[in-house]
Structure formats: structure tokens, C-alpha cells
Design a binder for these strands. Structure first.
Lengths: 117, 117
DNA sequence: CGGTATCCTGTGGGATACTG
DNA sequence: CAGTATCCCACAGGATACCG
């Protein structure tokens, strides 16, 4: 008798506001890129600057700081000369990578679909 | 002999700019929420307005239009009275849901970790 | 009901210059 | 090398009003 599958009241909302909260982790234009480029291992500040299209030092710095505070990555200063700073994903940060890969997969196909039309 | 795992040249960059491109699909503060609330089935405009915290009609409208153009969701006008418009995820759009779930999982744990400290 | 139009603000991000 | 400081802009998003 259930002709209407959709309940008018609401669809299962396991965690509405949490989503917004979680999305902040990869918010901004560059955060996902940073995570992406760190997925193969630690990178240094200027390496990331070169890796990632044209990201300004200011923004890269800001995003790295933010991601560090969120527990996505670690910052390690190595007392060499000249100074060297390595950024690496934490365990939890690394778990974001598969999700990003999924998004990329779908994104690719969405794009292909749009261009096919 | 490979003591250093990290290559100084670059980590595997399968698709650097594509990431940015793909992230646009879920960019903005609300796009993920919209996808999220549609994952259980079609919803109408005002239902989404109520579902999603305090999103303004303008922004909801803008995001829906954008997501429709990107092929993430469909818009269906039903000639009832009063008029009724249903939004639903496309097949590809639905594939974004698992990725969002992953992000939420990690986000939760990141948050728990921060609060534990 | 399902939007659009207008106005306004916050902030992410770019450019450039400078520092330890 | 690894940033910080300053200035400036574009645009996502909120509030309110109005429309078919």
C-alpha cells in the first residue's frame, strides 16, 4: 500500500549540521589540493607551492595552519640549514584521500557527461 | 637502498587541476547539504528550505540551478495546483553520497579527537 | 508554492613586499 | 627556505521585498 516512497516529513537526517561542520575540513579552494598532494608522503612548503597551480604563499600558509589545527596534517620543523619544514597527513587525514578519489571519479564522469551533450 | 621513500621531484599527481574542478560540484556551504538531503529521495523546494538549517531562498535556488546544470540533480515541475517542483539526485549525483558519508565519518573522528585533547 | 530582484557584508584568495 | 604583512577585490551568502 505504500505507493509513495517518500515521506513528506523528512528523509533520514543522520547528521545535518555535522555535514556542514565536516565539509569545513575540505572547504576553500585549496584544502583538497593540499591533502591530495600530501597523499603520497610528506612535502615541504615550497614543494607544495610549486605542486599546486598558482597558490599564493599566504593562502597556502593559512590552509596548512588550519588543516594542522583540525588534525588533518602535521607540521614538522627540521633544524637543518636552510630550515626545512615538512607537512604530512595524519592517519585521519589520510582517510580523506579515498573520499576525494571518489569525488574525482564522479566529477570526471559528470564532466564527460556534460561534454557529451 | 631506497632509504628515502619520498621523491623530491613530485608525488604521483594523477590529476591536479581536475580535483579543483571536481570540488566545485560540492563547493559552497550548501551544495553538500542539498545532496545529502536528497539522498533518501526527491524533495520539494520548500521542504529543502525547512530541512536545511537557515538557507535563504536565493542561495538554495542558486545552488539547485547550479547542481542541475552540473548533472547532479534533476528538476521536475509537476503541473499541480499549487505548483509543485521536485528535485532528485541523478544516478551520478547519487554516487556522491558515499563520498560524503566518508567525509562525515572522518570529520566526526577529527572532531572527537580535537575535543579529546 | 516556488521562486527572482536588490542591496549589503564577510571572507577567501591574489599580488606584492618584507623577514628570520 | 618558510613564511608574515598589507592592500585590494570578487563573490558566496544573508535579509528583505516582490512576482506568477
Amino acid at each position: 500500500m505504500s505507493i509513495k516512497v517518500r515521506k513528506n516529513k523528512a528523509p533520514p537526517p543522520p547528521d545535518p549540521c555535522m555535514l556542514t561542520e565536516c565539509m569545513k575540513v575540505i572547504s576553500g579552494a585549496w584544502a583538497p589540493n593540499i591533502i591530495w598532494w600530501l597523499r603520497a608522503g610528506p612535502r615541504r612548503f615550497n614543494e607544495l607551492r610549486v605542486d599546486i597551480p598558482p597558490i599564493s604563499a599566504k593562502v597556502l600558509s593559512a590552509r596548512l595552519t588550519e588543516l594542522e589545527q583540525r588534525g588533518v596534517l602535521t607540521r614538522t620543523v627540521r633544524p637543518t640549514s636552510p630550515p626545512s619544514v615538512e607537512y604530512a597527513l595524519t592517519e585521519l587525514g589520510a582517510e580523506l584521500v579515498p573520499a576525494l578519489e571518489s569525488l574525482i571519479q564522479v566529477g570526471h564522469r559528470l564532466k564527460a557527461r556534460r561534454e557529451a551533450v
